[in-house]
Computed example of a mutant assay.
Amino acid sequence: MTYCVGVALDRGLVFMSDTRTNAGVDNISTFRKMFTWEKPGERVMCLMTAGNLATTQSVVSLLDERTKAANQRDPSILAVPSMFQAARLVAETLREVIDRHADTGQRADTTFNATILLGGQVAGGPPRLFLIYPEGNFIEAGEDTPFFQIGETKYGRPILVRGYDRGMGFEDAVKLLLVSFDSTLKANLSVAAPFDLQVIERDALCLGPSRRIAGDDPYFQTVSTSWGEALKSALDQLPDFSFDG
């Protein structure tokens, strides 16, 4: 399974992904699920994947190859004029890969499905964040939906809903995401560290701070322990329940 989150802030975008993949309890591996492209001063993009590993690797490989093609016959994520067009290109590439692998006829292609988060900024436009579905369509984050999750989303979502603030700084956003990831991995063994982190600052048009956070990272361990203790303390401070009405 997977857990990836992209968050839109006033200051820019923050991305975090886990690295665990599994095809059963006896086949667990670590694979990177976050990929980036940049042309400093012109554009910067971050993409995260969830779903069939063969599908997502094919999509990323195709996008990467097209950025280096000598003839530029195929559209490139580094040449499209806007983030909307970048999302459209990624969606078309995802659908192309799924169609190629799926059998024809009545057999469903869900085995090869994948979901993608794409965010970034192209010069002349604002930072934008998109959720791309395996069907090849996509939606954009906005004021009412300022963050997207893919993969194992249910355990970490309540933390984001309660703690998110568009005006928060990058440091607080990373802290919030780590709590969300900690809650998820404690509830589901298919999500695990290390976590990949990437920040894209508004109008910088280049990759910002990035980091791989291991499971034994001192700060992550402090966040995990402190959050657990804070929850227990908050529970103790709630009024006692009475069976007498």
Results as ranks from 00 to 15, higher is better:
E96H: 15
D99M: 12
R32H: 11
E152G: 03
R162Q: 12
L13H: 03
T184I: 04
E140V: 02
L89D: 05
P127G: 03
V161K: 13
T36N: 07
L160H: 02
K175W: 03
R211T: 06
G215H: 08
E171K: 07
R20L: 10
G41R: 00
T56Y: 14
F243V: 11
R166V: 09
E143W: 08
F84V: 13
V223D: 02
C4E: 05
V44D: 00
G136E: 10
K33G: 03
D182A: 10
V80R: 00
A108T: 15
T2I: 07
L131N: 10
S226D: 14
G228P: 07
Y133M: 12
I77E: 10
G119A: 02
F84S: 13
E96M: 14
T21Q: 08
D196C: 12
T56D: 09
I116T: 09
R202A: 02
L207V: 09
G51H: 04
G119K: 00
D236C: 04
K39S: 14
A214T: 11
R166L: 06
H101D: 08
G124E: 02
M1P: 09
Q106Y: 14
S224Y: 06
A204I: 01
G125Y: 07
L235G: 04
Q57M: 14
T67R: 04
L129Y: 03
A108W: 13
R88E: 10
A86K: 01
D216N: 14
A187V: 09
Y164H: 07
R43E: 00
V90L: 08
S29F: 10
A192Q: 00
G125I: 02
Y219C: 06
I213H: 07
A79K: 09
T184R: 01
N188P: 01
V90Q: 08
T93R: 13
L94G: 05
L235A: 14
L129C: 07
T111R: 14
F138T: 05
A141C: 08
P218N: 12
S190M: 09
T19P: 03
R20H: 04
E229G: 03
R128S: 09
K232P: 00
E42G: 03
C206D: 11
T93F: 11
C46L: 04
W37C: 00
S233A: 07
V80W: 00
L238Q: 15
P146H: 10
K154V: 13
G125W: 03
F170H: 04
P40G: 08
S190G: 10
G163P: 01
A69D: 15
V179H: 07
P134V: 10
D26P: 05
F243E: 15
L13F: 05
G156I: 00
